[in-house]
Simulated scan of single mutants.
Amino acid sequence: MASQDPFDCSLDLLRRLNPKNTTANLNTLINLVPDLTEDLLSSVDQPLQLARCAKTQREYLLCDYNRDGDSYRSPWSNEYTPALSDATYPSEKLRKMEIAANQAFDVYRELYYEGGVSSVYFWNLDDGFAGVVLLKKCMPSVASGPKSTGTWDSIHVFEAIDGARTCHYKLTSTVILNMVSGGDDLGEMDLSGNMTRQIESDMTVDNAERDHIANIGKLVEDMELKMRNLLQEVYFGKAKDVVADLRSVATLSQTQRDRAIHQEMITSMSRR
């Protein structure tokens, strides 16, 4: 019997564990198999962590794409914390685009999320560039009770391959959702999970700085809209049907009477 690849086994195990505990499970696997640290961190999407830029005092999001060793780069100051002497930075031209993209998605975040934190990071490729757009929103639900919270993490990784007058974009989007609703009367419900979708598109680029940001913004906006609709119609709809079948506000006797009346109506109509 051929031995199984430890990396594939680790990914398979993470898929079967509670997505709410992805970070803790990932750290446990890294401690067990230190040789897989880089591969696991670059392959597994986990809830985004917050940090504060020491220079600008603005919050930014941490991920594997702005990490160099144990340090993370701020999109606002372009500095690593802790400081590094040989860190990797985007080129000067790409850094200007990165600044403009962070400003654009900061407006997008405020319009669509009405709060939260956004961060955009770019890096150079031989035939273009790549980047990631990060969005995070945490919302405690005071109206539903102190035990109710919700967290939304969006991770949009893209590649932009330059052509003559067009650019080929590859976008991979992941949404990580965690919702906990509870109270003394209803108990607690934990709805956690993630969804990943991919898309490729060729789009016109006349002015590189302006058009790249507009094209990436359109792709991210369209993808988030599709994923929100899928969550609303498929996942939330399915969860609602399951809960409705498991729990009922009406008493058992009332439910049985309703079913009997319904069956009697169907029988009467079939005899006509």
Rank of each mutant, 00 (worst) to 15 (best):
S3C: 02
F7W: 04
C9H: 04
S10E: 06
D12A: 15
R15V: 01
R16I: 05
R16P: 00
L17Q: 10
P19M: 09
N21H: 05
L26C: 09
T28F: 12
L32M: 12
D35L: 10
L36M: 01
L40P: 01
L41T: 01
S42N: 14
S43A: 15
D45V: 11
D45A: 15
L48T: 06
Q49H: 11
A51G: 06
A51D: 09
C53E: 06
C53V: 04
A54V: 11
A54D: 14
T56N: 07
E59T: 09
Y60L: 07
Y60D: 02
L62W: 07
C63I: 04
C63Q: 01
D64I: 02
P75S: 09
W76A: 05
S77N: 07
N78Q: 14
E79F: 00
Y80L: 01
A83F: 07
S85C: 02
A87F: 07
A87E: 08
L94Q: 08
L94D: 08
K96C: 04
K96A: 15
E98A: 09
I99C: 03
I99W: 02
A100G: 00
A100F: 03
D106G: 09
R109I: 01
E110C: 03
Y112E: 11
Y113Q: 07
Y113M: 14
E114S: 06
G115Q: 01
G116E: 08
V117L: 09
S118I: 05
V120Q: 03
F122I: 07
W123N: 06
F129W: 03
F129V: 01
G131D: 08
V132L: 08
V132D: 04
L134H: 06
L134R: 02
K136H: 13
M139Q: 13
A143T: 12
A143H: 13
S148M: 08
T149Y: 14
G150M: 11
G150C: 12
W152E: 09
D153K: 01
D153G: 06
I155G: 05
H156T: 03
E159N: 13
R165L: 12
Y169R: 06
T172G: 03
T172S: 13
V175E: 04
I176M: 14
M179V: 15
V180F: 00
G182F: 07
D185H: 11
L186I: 15
L186F: 12
M189H: 05
D190V: 15
L191I: 14
S192T: 12
N194R: 12
I199G: 02
M203K: 11
M203W: 05
A214F: 02
K218P: 00
L219D: 06
M223N: 10
M223A: 12
E224T: 13
K226T: 03
M227S: 10
M227L: 14
R228V: 10
L230H: 15
Y235L: 13
A239S: 13
A239E: 09
K240H: 14
V243L: 15
V243Y: 13
A244R: 00
D245T: 01
D245R: 07
L246D: 04
L246Q: 11
L246G: 15
A250S: 12
A250F: 04
S253H: 00
Q254S: 08
T255E: 09
R257E: 13
R257N: 07
D258E: 14
H262A: 15
S270E: 14
S270H: 07
